[in-house]
Amino acid sequence: MAVIELHDIVKTFGATRALDHLDLTVEQGEVHGFLGPNGSGKSTTIRVLLGLLRADSGSATILGGDPWRDAASLHRRLAYVPGDVSLWPNLTGGEVIDVLARMRGGLDEARRREMIERFELDPTKKARTYSKGNRQKVALVAALASRADLYLLDEPTSGLDPLMEAEFQEAVHEVRAEGATILLSSHILAEAEALSDRISIIRAGRVVQTGTLAELRHLTRTTVIAETERPPTPITAVPGVHEPVMHGNRVTFDVDSDHLDAAVAALAELGVRSLAAHPPTLEELFLHQYGEEVSA
């Protein structure tokens, strides 16, 4: 069952088209990575899902309800961490956590304690004195300390240090193990790679690619670095091989996943001395996705 179902969503701000016929489906129980560069419409999408913004057209369903019409009742079952966390300057972090949790309808005391400890947050400090990272921790603790069916996390770790980021990843694995669904927007590719079951890539208000990591990689190229006994010139003739670079008997090239077999066979005929190949990182997926656009 899909927890989030967006179909053909359009949202404009004056002349700017923030969401341009966007489709997005998030299934029950998955961690869904929502990737895109700054200004691509990630936060706008999440705000439409929260009923903060009203879509101009298209259909939106979240947890079986209409995000605009049923906002208040739907929000009992979800938790949100904004990308740019702003807190009431004269309340302490602990007070903010309690306020948000109570408004959501209660919090798990044990989880609250555990999360505060894990994120090493001092809840007695006034929010005015927190750094960006600490404000983000407050929002994360407030979200994770309540048991929600759906977590909407908008670039939740952009202010956290690597240790805290590891804690965050562990916490996400835990809530997922409990059956919750998570939409995780990010431009940090390693994070999405480490956490996500499925990924959607958004570009200029439109989801341009969606699937599991494996599926997305399938669409792209593998990088091969090899050293051969004979000059590796014949490799350039293999279909699907791109941008070969040769230094003596050393060659580096990208190959379409469909033609990997032929390329490896061709290398074998030249006598392989050493061979390294790695699947594309999300960086390369990104470059592929957006590089196309740039060169076009």
Partner: peptide, 26 residues
């Protein structure tokens, strides 16, 4: 200088009216 405050929210801070009151207390 700001002083450290309470680690927990008081009972009044559970409703929109309570929060609004607290925000405008000063």
């Amino acid at each position: 200088q700001p002083r450290p405050g309470s680690a927990r929210a008081g009972r009044a801070l559970g409703t929109p009216f309570g929060v609004a009151t607290r925000l405008q207390r000063g």
